[in-house]
Design a binder for these strands. Structure first.
Length: 277
DNA sequence: ACCGGGACCTGGAAGC
DNA sequence: TGCTTCCAGGTCCCGG
């Protein structure tokens, strides 16, 4: 579910509670979230016990926690339905898999009904977790290289929308912000990279960067209780969406918004603002 | 080597 | 009021 703006909102929410705090104890239960760790839940719990958190970083839709004097980090991916919540209540969500008990009494809970997300211990190389080396920088990263991404996209015959969603090309963009960026750039998602001018690709990437910055300012996009921040509150960007989830409604230009499928994902677009070629 | 499609899950909404 | 079907904000792996 969460894309870059929602993940960044969660990172900021966790940062204030976790950084500088020691993990006094860990609770939870085994589950698919730990599938990338050979020792499963027990290994993760034992490793985190007693650690002092000193940083919380993000690349695309992934967050990782750094610990004082340690080479190992905990990579957090929320998948489609993951939540990280800060609480002082002992109530357990049915799908809670990990809870960190911090000194001071604050607790951080990781919940994921569909278990598409994961919690993975990883070494770090060149300041990026090894398990995330195949994930490209996102448009808000200091390592972001727009020209390199533009060249790569223009060399491929794949639909532009599919490439915006490819986390090995650029990370952080998901189905919502891909469609919003394409609408802002007046481009239909089925346009092929090889058919686009450099300026056109530059424009859609700039639009993605801008729309995600705007969404972060209002805490991301919530359609329902699936996405909430670390305090359980929704984000407000849904009221600023131009096309995503709005098939049958009117575009700002007055034309009816349509929906079709590209590479198995819904694509919402305005046929007037975003001509197919 | 690239690409599209299916698999992985639960739960909420819509349809009958 | 059920029961069934469809759909979802993501990623990975497989076969063509």
């Amino acid at each position: 579910m969460p894309e870059l703006p929602e993940v960044e909102t969660i990172r900021r929410g966790l940062q204030g509670h976790l950084v500088g705090k020691r993990i006094q104890s860990v609770s939870g239960k085994p589950g698919r979230l730990f599938r990338n760790n050979p020792g499963g839940y027990e290994q993760v719990a034992a490793t985190l016990q007693g650690k002092l958190t000193d940083g919380l970083r993000r690349r695309g839709k992934f967050i990782w926690m750094e610990f004082d004097g340690e080479d190992q980090v905990l990579v957090v991916h929320l998948g489609m339905s993951g939540q990280a919540r800060v609480t002082d209540s002992s109530a357990r969500h049915k799908h809670e898999y990990l809870r960190l008990h911090l000194d001071g009494g604050t607790q951080v809970s990781f919940i994921d009904p569909r278990t598409f997300g994961h919690l993975t211990l990883s070494e770090v190389r060149d300041s990026v977790p090894v398990v995330l080396e195949h994930i490209a920088p996102d448009p808000l990263d200091a390592r972001w290289d727009a020209d390199a991404v533009i060249s790569r996209m223009r060399a491929s015959r794949r639909p532009i929308k599919t490439m915006l969603l490819d986390q090995a090309v650029l990370s952080g963009v998901g189905n919502i912000y891909a469609d919003e960026a394409l609408h802002r750039a007046h481009m239909h998602g089925r346009q092929r990279g090889t058919d686009l001018a450099k300026d056109q690709v530059a424009e859609v990437l700039a639009a993605a960067q801008q729309v995600m910055r705007e969404a972060i300012k209002v805490g991301g996009t919530s359609f329902d209780s699936l996405y909430v921040n670390t305090d359980g509150e929704p984000g407000y960007f849904s009221r600023s969406l131009s096309v995503y989830g709005r098939s049958g409604e009117s575009c700002v230009c007055g034309t009816e918004i349509l929906q079709e499928t590209i590479s198995g994902r819904s694509h919402f677009y305005c046929p007037k603002c975003q001509p197919p070629s």
